[in-house]
Design a protein around this nucleic acid. Sequence first.
DNA 1: CGATCGTTTGACGGTGCTCAATCACCGTGG
DNA 2: CCACGGTGATTGAGCACCGTCAAACGATCG
Lengths: 279, 279
Amino acid sequence: MSQVLQARQVGGRCDPPVWFPLKDQIQPSRMSDLLQMMGIDVDAHATEVDTPMPIRRLRAGDTLFHQGLPAQAVYFVRAGTFKVLRTAEDGYEQVLGFSGRGDILGFDAVARGLHPSEAVALEDSSAYVVLLADLLALGQDEPGLVVAVHHAVSRALAGRGDLADVMAAVAAEVRLARFLIQMSQRMASFGQSPRRLRLRMSRRDIGSYLGVAHETVSRSFRALAEAGLLEVSNREVEIRNLEGLKDFARNTRRQVDDGSATCAPPPKVAAARATARLS
Amino acid sequence: MSQVLQARQVGGRCDPPVWFPLKDQIQPSRMSDLLQMMGIDVDAHATEVDTPMPIRRLRAGDTLFHQGLPAQAVYFVRAGTFKVLRTAEDGYEQVLGFSGRGDILGFDAVARGLHPSEAVALEDSSAYVVLLADLLALGQDEPGLVVAVHHAVSRALAGRGDLADVMAAVAAEVRLARFLIQMSQRMASFGQSPRRLRLRMSRRDIGSYLGVAHETVSRSFRALAEAGLLEVSNREVEIRNLEGLKDFARNTRRQVDDGSATCAPPPKVAAARATARLS
DNA sequence: CGATCGTTTGACGGTGCTCAATCACCGTGG
DNA sequence: CCACGGTGATTGAGCACCGTCAAACGATCG
């Protein structure tokens, strides 16, 4: 089944996201690198010295910080992907989100001084380290850092809202569709194709994020694929009908739409949404 | 049909862009008032002048800021209660959380400049206003404000995690139990009794927060009450067995507990947890 | 006192969780 | 090269739980 997109690697080999120039591979990074990554106009604020920025490098599966332990720093993802999760007392892992380049991690620990969540690298990754003890002083010397923190934290806050968006849908396939759209938009924000997704997380992680069993994730992938919206091969996903997918993802509750009085575009792809429950 | 999703146009009813008339009401508040509320040692940082702080006052049902509109300020709740929600394109309202004194509102709009969510007062309330245009400059003059923002945003981030905690539970009664525990802990953090709750929100709001139908909220209240954990009278809730409630809320997935190997306290109230499903 | 909204209770049908088995993939070592 | 075990992904079957629809009840406010 569905060995359709087996042979379709982007660059032939698995050259990881080349992204940002590889200039900062070895040399110690500076504050200006961080600010540039965050899209802050570095020249405008470049007042003082360019403070060196420590970096942590992690391999796939490594934990950036542990839940329940005292917080010592916040982190800016420089490369790679992380999952943020909470482990309940009964051992159940709830994934709160997935973070990539430019995202801030660990900030929810600032208030209480303890990490209420945990961040685990899904692939080889690296992150800038900002010690909490230095945070205020650095912000005073370099206002750009304050801006960077504000923007990143605001995005993180909105990202937790995206989690709620997903959970709000009742049907599992709709949840998955919304998740895929989120990932697609993130790809687009990085200037990459919004149709080709390389998911870095397991089905179990997705299921935890969506609030469904991981078997249901599989079934939902299959359903969306059979509806002609996707092609799936393991963790490679190609969105064949992005508009149809968005349309399908619109229905929070089960089909009650009358198609009137809403400012939503006309149901020109009504075929897809008619398949809210298929087979 | 479906009076629930009324299309809810942004300016549906009330005057939308009424932007706080700067009628500094009686006794204009100061920056020091805000910092004191946030628990910042004001004397230590009291360097410059005590900047006046504008305040917005709202009546029950008023909207502090609207989803989708440009962000002009962030707010610190001074008194009252708010619900934060997102309205999906199909009109479904997802409540993201409830905010009280000391909580920050509207910060998730900083990154994109548009409000991804909306805040509605559940009772007569008031909030300090910090214009985005002034945020950085004020932070430079008064470092205490930066600390306040950091702490408040961190708490807001953790609060969104609490939403995930609730949604993670599969059984509706467990979700409600976790919600009540959250409210109880908030009461405790205010130095009030953690056993008496005056819920300011409707069953529908609770249901939206929990991700269940509002009828199910009613049924779950009844179930917890019949289990002897609560007494409920409309929006007045008295927790009769807090430990039992916490114990009951522990099970994310359905009863798999063997009562061994866990560091959990001995099941002296095992009667309650045995009633995870009660008919 | 009537109207409107919020809450409660009931009955029914469907969806997804649970429990399993099987398959696909991969690095190891015989 | 292939057996081997381990992990992750897929598929199947059954049943409980919750969403939907509907109606009665209650509260609050004009």
